[in-house]
Deep mutational scan, measured.
Amino acid sequence: MQIFVKTLTGKTITLEVEPSDTIENVKAKIQDKEGIPPDQQRSIFAGKQLEDGRTLSDYNIQKESTLHLVLR
């Protein structure tokens, strides 16, 4: 499925993911596309910070959902 990741600069990245993917996985995909190390990424969805060990389905993130990426 496709999800979108919006950065603070307003750029939107499209990722191909599975509901079973962990947040860690997703951060690795963002690193592949953007070169941002996962330890600098904070992902926010529906106002909640997403934890690395959880999966997209844990957070009820579905296709075409938009995550927000904040850098630390």
Rank of each mutant, 00 (worst) to 15 (best):
K33L: 14
I61V: 08
V70P: 02
T66W: 06
K33F: 10
I61G: 02
T7N: 05
P37C: 08
H68M: 11
L15N: 00
V26L: 12
R54A: 08
E16W: 14
K33C: 06
L15T: 00
T55C: 01
V26F: 04
S57F: 10
Q2V: 15
V17F: 04
N60K: 08
D21P: 01
G10H: 04
T66G: 02
R72G: 11
S43L: 15
L50W: 03
L67S: 01
K48I: 14
N60P: 02
T9A: 11
S57A: 14
S20M: 09
V5W: 01
A46E: 14
K11W: 08
K48W: 08
K63F: 06
E64D: 14
Q31D: 06
K63W: 07
V17I: 03
L71S: 10
D52M: 05
I36S: 06
L67N: 01
A46Q: 14
Y59W: 03
F45Q: 05
H68F: 14
Q2D: 05
T22D: 03
R42H: 15
T12G: 02
V26G: 02
V26I: 12
K63Q: 12
G53F: 13
L56I: 09
H68K: 06
T9W: 14
Q49V: 15
F45V: 07
R54T: 05
A28R: 15
T14V: 13
V17S: 00
Y59P: 03
H68L: 15
K29D: 02
N60C: 05
P37Y: 09
L56N: 01
T55G: 01
L71M: 12
N60S: 07
D58E: 10
I3D: 01
I23R: 01
E51T: 04
E24H: 11
A28D: 06
I44W: 14
E34G: 08
I44V: 09
G35S: 06
E51F: 06
N25D: 11
V26A: 00
Y59L: 05
H68W: 14
L71E: 09
E18R: 14
D32Y: 10
F4G: 02
L69R: 00
D21E: 09
V17T: 01
R72I: 14
G47F: 05
T12M: 12
Q49S: 10
T14C: 07
T12P: 03
L8A: 13
D21N: 06
L50T: 02
I3R: 01
R72W: 13
M1H: 03
D21Q: 03
K11C: 06
Q41H: 10
Q62I: 11
D21M: 10
D32S: 11
G53S: 12
D32N: 11
A46F: 15
L15S: 01
K29A: 07
E24K: 11
L50G: 01
H68G: 04
V26K: 00
K27A: 07
E16K: 09
V70R: 08
Q41M: 15
A46T: 04
Q49H: 13
L69V: 08
T55Q: 06
V17Q: 00
Q62G: 12
Q31E: 09
T22E: 01
K6F: 06
A28L: 14
Q40L: 12
T9Y: 14
E24C: 07
T66Y: 08
V5K: 00
E34L: 15
L71I: 12
S43I: 15
K29N: 02
Q31M: 13
I3M: 01
D21F: 07
E16T: 12
I3H: 01
Q31S: 12
Q40C: 14
Q41E: 05
Q2P: 06
M1Y: 13
I13G: 01
K6E: 07
E34P: 03
G10E: 03
L56Y: 03
N25P: 00
E24T: 07
E18Y: 15
D39N: 12
T66P: 00
K6Y: 05
L71R: 08
P37N: 08
R42F: 15
F4S: 04
S57E: 11
Q49N: 11
L50E: 01
T55I: 05
S57L: 13
L8N: 13
T7V: 10
G53Y: 12
S65K: 03
Q49P: 12
N25F: 11
V5M: 03
T9C: 14
K33H: 11
L69M: 12
I23E: 01
I23F: 03
Q2W: 11
P19G: 07
T22C: 02
K29H: 04
M1N: 02
L15P: 00
N60E: 08
D58R: 00
L50D: 03
S43D: 08
V26R: 02
Q40E: 12
I23D: 00
S65D: 14
T22L: 08
F4T: 06
P37T: 08
F4D: 01
L15F: 03
T22S: 07
A28E: 09
V17L: 05
F45D: 04
D32V: 12
T66C: 04
D52H: 05
T55P: 10
L69W: 02
K11Y: 11
T66H: 15
L50S: 01
I30V: 09
E16R: 08
V5Y: 02
Q2T: 14
R72V: 14
S20N: 12
R42K: 13
